[in-house]
Design a protein around this nucleic acid. Structure first.
Lengths: 115, 115
DNA sequence: CTGTATCCAGCCGGATACTG
DNA sequence: CAGTATCCGGCTGGATACAG
């Protein structure tokens, strides 16, 4: 997330782009088919609104997601993965596998509703 | 790194354990065969000593790495991956693949010497 | 609903000095 | 070499109020 990268190591560069507390979780939501603000806010991890707005902005700037208007007057936006965004799938998938195998109580990928 | 997890999502749990700015880079170094303090400090990303000590301590507490004494008087420690630590390999590998494909100038896995 | 703006506490992490 | 301890600035992110 520091915009410029600490080294030429591909791992370090990847972490500099998406290695913060929230970015990959927003991407996970979009992978799960969520497209709208309130859907992201409804996730069990309870991201706050300013952080969500910031991450969506950064993800768009990085070319990971695209905004597209929807609804009657085309004022609302929905967010979808670009190809570049989709290419992060293997990283998320590796984390799913590791979490399932190594953290008790994380059987399912789909995060259940929070209440 | 927040010890307790934000949700039961395996991605969120994985990020809570290793999703900070430095942990995966220390693990990368150990994967690359580094075992000692000054080898970690020599990496191009220039981790500071207190952060390195903290991450090694946490990684040991999480069962990802093991300390073992070496040298004449067995005072110095070297760090090696446990099986649990090695199981993070696919996550690092996915990041290597993504970084190589999506960030210009990150061709090599092995970080070159910094000076 | 879909965001933006502001306030602010806390902690991460950078720099550095110090010890055995 | 192999760490530990301390200081402290800055940024992350939580809460909340506000706006179209």
């Amino acid at each position: 997330m520091t915009e410029d990268h600490r080294s030429t190591c591909p791992i370090a560069c990847t972490l500099d782009l998406v290695g913060d507390r929230w970015t990959l979780l927003v991407l996970r939501d979009i992978f799960l088919g969520k497209t709208r603000y309130d859907e992201f806010l409804a996730s069990p991890e309870k991201i706050s609104t300013n952080i969500l707005a910031d991450r969506l902005r950064r993800l768009e700037a990085m070319g990971m997601v695209e905004k597209q208007p929807y609804g009657a007057h085309r004022k609302r936006m929905e967010y979808r993965l670009t190809e570049r965004g989709q290419s992060l799938g293997p990283i998320l998938e590796a984390m799913v596998q590791w979490g399932r195998a190594n953290v008790p109580g994380t059987e399912r990928f789909q995060p259940q509703s929070s209440h």
